[in-house]
Design a protein around this nucleic acid. Structure first.
Lengths: 135, 135
DNA sequence: CTGGACCTTCCCACAATGGGAAGGTCAACA
DNA sequence: TGTTGACCTTCCCATTGTGGGAAGGTCCAG
């Protein structure tokens, strides 16, 4: 199977497959006589795994770890779970930060008339940066 | 005022101040005879504005636009508000996406025993990627 | 045999930030 | 006065993940 076929079937672009191989995330696949990479069904499944894992926001490093655990029949689910928990924690932290930003922005947008005149609470707030407005 | 002083007072690192200048986000400041950049109080305020704007997640391009509006006494608050609204929309979209990821991860983590054994719903789910599990 | 659709590698770009090298300058203290 | 340490300057490199595109080889259908 050519790279573009496996790319389409897995949802990982050919560009990225080559890149993942080059950084060692994926073990290099066999080449045909003409130098073309040659993939099988297992590769489709593996790349789908990568794709899904990326979709859940895991870094490529984490994807590598998860791939290794996936392949390791003697893994402990504890390790997998720990990895997922840590990532979940990161996500939740980032969500919390973004929600704080979102709240602030909503207030500011709300306070701004949005008309032809220059007076603008948004700019005022940005200019008055250092002090934290009392929530 | 030297760059490290203005950096400390504004919360923008000296490295970044130089960088912002190099990409044209900031107009180049005056130099002393020895070639050192020289800053005044206005620059502190301006960099604080940049810092705060960055903290709210605006891109450098948007920071530039906001800086220009801030300086333009004939601006319309409409323009400022539009910019802020667009950014707010982006943030909210991203939050929604991350919350979906977070929900999925929470379910998976919950389903995984996290013991010494290899059975792991997390890996199972990642492997079964393509289909969307019914929520 | 030719053209279009593949494939290969290699370099460049992005966003935003930081690290660090190599070299010049300033100020304080012995 | 000389040295030392803390500044400053520019320049290049790394990060993270993805894509664009060039230059060149290959394959297949008409």
């Amino acid at each position: 199977m050519n790279i573009s076929t496996v790319a389409e079937r897995s949802g990982v672009s050919a560009k990225m497959i080559r890149h993942y191989e080059s950084i060692g995330l994926l073990t290099a696949t066999d080449r045909r006589d003409n130098g073309y990479r040659d993939y099988g069904e297992n590769d489709v499944a593996m790349l789908q795994f990568v794709r899904r894992t990326r979709d859940l926001g895991f870094s490529l490093e984490e994807v590598g770890a998860l791939l290794a655990l996936w392949r390791d029949r003697r893994r402990s689910s504890r390790e997998v779970r720990r990895l997922a928990e840590r990532h979940l924690g990161d996500i939740e932290t980032r969500i919390a930060e973004m929600r704080a930003v979102s709240r602030t922005l909503r207030k500011l947008v709300h306070a701004c008339k949005g008309d032809d005149r220059p007076d603008c609470p948004i700019l005022d707030d940005l200019a008055a940066a250092p002090r934290r407005p009392p929530s």
